[in-house]
Nucleic acid binder design. Structure first.
Lengths: 123, 123
DNA sequence: GCTTGACCTGGAGTGCGCTCCAGGCCGTAA
DNA sequence: TTACGGCCTGGAGCGCACTCCAGGTCAAGC
């Protein structure tokens, strides 16, 4: 699979894919006769996983740590697992904060509705 | 209240408070005899509200829109309410995405646990 | 043969939200 | 009186995660 197709199928731009490779988040793929990248379909799984990490706010620096551990093989499984568990905990905390802020927002909006209703009925 | 105290009480740095003022997110406070900012305690309420917007991921640009509407007075209440409601909807969507990603993370971690357990019991 | 479009590289640029710096003023306490 | 801490300004710098550019190669279709 060439970079354009991978971009389409993974939802990234070709720019981003090359950038990820440059910083070490994607393994360098093999190249075809004319030097163009030729990806294995399995890379889509890795990209999908990275997207979950990204969506939950993990900084790239930390993804790099994870990727480096992964490259060192099975003996780092425990460390990777710990890393993911720590991240999960942060995500949970973030969601709690969002939930609390959402409630404040609800209250604020409710206040606007009350005021606006008063305005209307006063006319 | 001087800027240092406001920083302490609002959880921002003095740098950030001056920055917010510069971009129009905080109204310019009065100054004391020697030109130092002298804040009214009521500004804490506004800062706390901004913090909720920030925590839920509203870009500063949009906070500025809100602040500008607010400055125009009561006739913009409906528009401000709409703005907050649209934002609330985005936050809800974001939370759904986080929830889904959290579940993927759980599955992944579960997989690590299974593998690690297998490793252990094979020894 | 020529055009088109996808690909290549190294490096510069972007937008966001701060964060810090230099150089200076002011009021209080030792 | 001098040292200190906190304040002032305009403007530069930073970290992040991309995003784009110039200038080039290459394969396929007309």
């Amino acid at each position: 699979m060439k970079i354009g197709e991978l971009a389409r199928r993974s939802g990234r731009s070709t720019h981003t894919l090359r950038y990820y490779e440059r910083i070490g988040l994607l393994p360098p793929p093999r190249r075809d006769g004319s030097g163009q990248r030729d990806y294995d379909a399995s890379i889509l799984v890795w990209l999908a996983f990275l997207e979950r990490l990204r969506a939950t706010g993990m900084p790239i620096r930390e993804m790099l740590d994870y990727a480096a551990l992964r490259a060192r093989g099975v003996e780092t499984a425990q460390t990777r697992c710990n890393l993911l568990e720590a991240h999960r905990e942060r995500v949970r905390e973030h969601m709690c904060l969002l939930q609390a802020s959402l409630e404040v927002l609800d209250t604020k909006i409710e206040g606007y509705h009350a005021t606006l209703h008063e305005e209307t009925s006063r006319i």
